[in-house]
Design a protein around this nucleic acid. Structure first.
Lengths: 190, 190
DNA sequence: ACTGCTGTTAGTACCAGATACTAAAAAAGG
DNA sequence: CCTTTTTTAGTATCTGGTACTAACAGCAGT
């Protein structure tokens, strides 16, 4: 029973190592954790972690998609719902990289970025640009908070759309913003 | 001599195929170009193109770096001047990673981030937080533009500071923002 | 027609980093 | 001491290659 604690620790370390650097071979992992390659393979199997090549393949594929897909990945956060010219919903998990050094308070520009990209995504046009915005941060967001942003399209005047975005953490509303999103009628072609 | 033209064409096609999709195996490339695998290998050797795994490895590494840089690189730009509670100046070189893929127009949130972090930097306090902002993007910034942001501290009411930020590219003013920066008297210690 | 050269294909041996599986050794616990 | 868990060792096999050798196709020049 005592050993299973070592095992759990090793699994935790393994996950952390791969999180930090997914490009480690089993051999390097083994050296790092001071166990045999066999053990690493066994642990990976138990944890359902794919082999190096598969990990590389996935990262490469993701990178590839990111380079040409635009809409999906350029939205900061994960797009959960989209009804063009009406509303949109996105989810952003905050990590410690997004926070102020030691306070754990998330930088405002991450919240802004999620809101701004969502506001742009919800407007259906060949090309969109943020023209202006008025934003208010009602409460600080902390590392680990799950930010749910909801965009609603308001009035439209010519090529200008007013999009309201409200961001919540649980029940608490932490951010309200109003974006003027300008639709440029494919001024610059693809 | 006539065949060397075919060869050149094939090399061109090979390069284009790999540009479009770097995740093709030699076998797939061979099928695509209707030659043998040997020929593909030979061509790759001649053109100095790495094998699939190496290509994946490079992409994965790049993706890894980019993920890190996007999140960790505190987008501030370079602080050129700082006179606490008075004014500050920062410089941000825009790269293609900061732009909307096909147009070369820089995402608004990068411009916002530079301005916002500068506004926070100029306020002298143990801890600062952006409370609200009103921003206007007057002209698009393009990849390669050097953004110069200038922050000026305005009125102060209690722990709230009004900071104006103006961003220029050369002579052209592309951004104006007014930030409410809240100084928290070290509510959360380091 | 013979020779020389370029370009292409085929085939073999080998490698890294794995999987999948079997077996055995080591470490506790009872 | 015996049982069970955990770890290690070893073998066969796979993929997507490298590196190298050999053969063949086709045309050019003499």
């Amino acid at each position: 029973m005592a050993r299973s604690i070592f095992k759990q620790m090793r699994h935790k370390n393994l996950l952390e190592l791969l999180e930090a650097n997914p490009l480690l071979t089993d051999e390097e992992l083994a050296r790092n954790l001071k166990v045999s390659i066999s053990t690493i393979r066994l642990d990976r199997a138990l944890l359902g972690l794919p082999e190096l090549r598969e990990r590389m393949r996935r990262m490469a594929q993701k990178a590839n998609q990111r380079l040409r897909s635009l809409r999906q990945e350029e939205v900061i956060g994960e797009l959960l719902e989209l009804e063009p010219d009406c509303l949109a919903l996105s989810y952003l998990m905050t990590s410690k990289e997004m926070a102020f050094r030691h306070t754990g308070i998330v930088w405002d520009h991450y919240i802004y970025s999620q809101a701004s990209t969502l506001a742009m995504a919800v407007v259906e046009a060949d090309m969109v640009v943020t023209g202006a915005a008025r934003v208010r941060y009602k409460a600080p967001a902390h590392v680990g908070d799950k930010l749910i942003a909801r965009a609603k399209v308001g009035v439209r005047k010519g090529n200008k759309n007013v999009v309201s975005v409200r961001t919540r953490v649980g029940q608490l509303e932490i951010f309200v913003g109003r974006f003027i999103v300008v639709a440029c009628s494919s001024e610059v072609e693809n």
